[in-house]
Amino acid sequence: MRFSDYIVFVDESGDHGMDSIDDGYPLFVLSCCLISKRDYMTTVVPAMQQLKFSTFGHDAVILHEREIRKDTGPFAILRDRTKKHAFIQALTDVLERTPMTVFSAVIDKRQLVEHRRRNESPYELSLRFCLERIFYSLRRLGQSNDDEGPLLTHVLCESRGRNEDADLELAFRRICGGDNFAHVHLPFEPVLTDKKNNSIGLQLADLVARPIGLKQLRPDQPNRAWDVIETKLDRDATGRYRGYGLKCFP
C-alpha cells in the first residue's frame, strides 16, 4: 500500500450526544482539513510555529478555540485587549495563508429529533458526508489510485476516550467499507491521537469548527473567522460549496 500526497485533520464543535441538547448551541459540527503533505511541512507548520514563538516565546502551546475565546490557560495573557486583537489578527492571517481545503458537516440536533432520527449518531452522519466528499476531491487530484492500487490517505482525529475511540473507529471502517453514498471502498485510515501531541493540523481543524457552526446558527452575526474559512471550502465547478465543502443536515 502506497500513501497519498495528502493528509486529513478532523475536529469537532458541540456535543455529538443526543441525550441532551444545548439550546444555546444545539449543533454538532465536524470539520476536516485536507492539506498536501508538502504544504504542511513547508508552509503550514512553520507559519503556526512562528505565531506561537512570537506570542508565547515557545511552541509548546496548543491552540484551542475555546481557551482562546475565553482567555484561559496559556491564553490568559490575551486578557489585554490590545494583545488579544493583535493575536486574533495574526491567527486570522495564518488561516488565510494556509493552503487547505475544508470539508464540514453541521448537524442540527433539534431537527434530528423532529425528524424522529434521535437514534442516529451526529458524528457518524457528519463523518460519512465528509469522507465521501474528501474521496471525490482526492480523486480529482489524482490521489485515489496509481499503478499499484489505491493510495492510502491517513485521517487524524482527536482521541476522546477508550469507548468513544472504539465507536469512532468502528463507524469509520464501516463507512470506508462501503456504507457510503456510492457504496465503494474509501482508501482512508484513521489515526486517533491525543491533542496533547501538539499536532498543528488538529489545531487548525479545531479553530475551523466553531466558526462554521456559529455562521449557521447566527448568520447575521459578524464572524471574521468564517469569512476566511468560507474561501477554503470545497466547491463544485460553478463555485457552490453547499453540498460540497459544507453539508447542513437535516
Rank of each mutant, 00 (worst) to 15 (best):
E65Q: 03
L156S: 14
K37S: 01
Y123Q: 03
Y244F: 13
V155A: 08
A60C: 12
L63I: 09
E114G: 03
A209H: 07
T43A: 04
P74T: 04
I77S: 09
D146E: 05
G201Y: 11
R2K: 09
L156R: 09
H58R: 15
R160T: 10
V10Q: 02
I107A: 00
D179P: 06
N180G: 03
H183D: 13
I35M: 10
Y6N: 05
D80G: 13
L246G: 04
F188R: 05
R81Q: 10
L63E: 06
R66P: 07
V8M: 09
N198F: 08
D23V: 10
Q216D: 09
R235W: 10
A237W: 07
R174Q: 15
D234F: 06
T238F: 05
D165H: 01
D93C: 01
S13I: 05
S121C: 09
I77C: 12
Y123H: 12
M41C: 01
V102D: 09
E230H: 01
L131T: 12
G14Y: 00
D5V: 01
G245R: 10
Q50Y: 04
H185L: 10
H16M: 05
K232V: 02
I35H: 10
T55A: 12
L214M: 05
N198C: 01
V228M: 05
L202V: 06
I68W: 05
S137T: 15
F135N: 12
D80E: 14
V208Q: 00
G57D: 08
H58I: 02
R162M: 08
L141H: 09
T82P: 06
R242S: 06
D5G: 02
R116K: 15
V113C: 03
D39G: 07
V208W: 07
G243C: 04
D39Y: 05
V208F: 03
M41N: 10
H16E: 11
V155D: 13
C130K: 01
R110C: 11
H154L: 14
T231Q: 11
I107K: 03
A86M: 14
L78H: 14
C33V: 14
V102S: 08
A47N: 15
G14L: 03
R160E: 13
D234K: 04
D59Q: 12
S4I: 00
G239Q: 04
T72C: 11
P250G: 01
C176S: 11
Y136Q: 13
A237N: 08
R218E: 02
R110F: 04
M48Y: 14
R218W: 00
H154G: 11
K195T: 08
R2T: 00
T193E: 12
V155T: 13
R173H: 11
P26D: 01
V228H: 02
K195H: 06
G24K: 11
F56K: 13
K196Q: 14
Y136F: 15
G239H: 08
M100T: 03
A166W: 06
E158K: 07
E132A: 04
F103Q: 11
S121A: 04
L131Y: 03
L233P: 10
Q49L: 05
P26G: 05
S31Y: 01
I229G: 03
T43Q: 12
A182C: 09
R174M: 09
R173C: 14
N197M: 13
D234V: 03
T72N: 07
L202Y: 06
W226S: 05
I77P: 04
I175Q: 13
A166F: 08
N119Q: 10
C157L: 14
L125H: 08
D194R: 13
L95C: 06
